[in-house]
């Protein structure tokens, strides 16, 4: 396949690229929360709340990628 022959706009794959980082981040966050809950089940509620706060911060990155497609 001739890669140089591909034409089009980089924005087509832009959201795919923008979703990569938050995807990895969410995976690490959930995995670590699960680990921590398994080690100390008695603080599961606090860990879950903190997980949702971190989720909101990570999610915003992916969503800005989505919104940027409409703006630019």
């Amino acid at each position: 396949m001739d890669v140089t022959g591909i034409t089009g706009n980089i924005a087509t794959i832009g959201f795919g690229l923008a979703a990569l980082g938050p995807g990895i981040g969410l995976g690490i966050m959930v995995a670590k929360t699960q680990e921590a809950t398994a080690r100390q089940p008695e603080v599961a509620g606090l860990l879950r709340t903190n997980m949702f706060i971190a989720l909101a911060a990570i999610e915003a990155l992916g969503l800005i990628g989505f919104a940027a497609g409409f703006v630019f």
Binding site: A56, A57, E59, A60, L63, I64, F66, A67
Partner: peptide, 13 residues
Amino acid sequence: ATLTIRLLVNMVA
């Protein structure tokens, strides 16, 4: 800004 965008984009998506 993130409060707005998070809610808006989630619902649009």
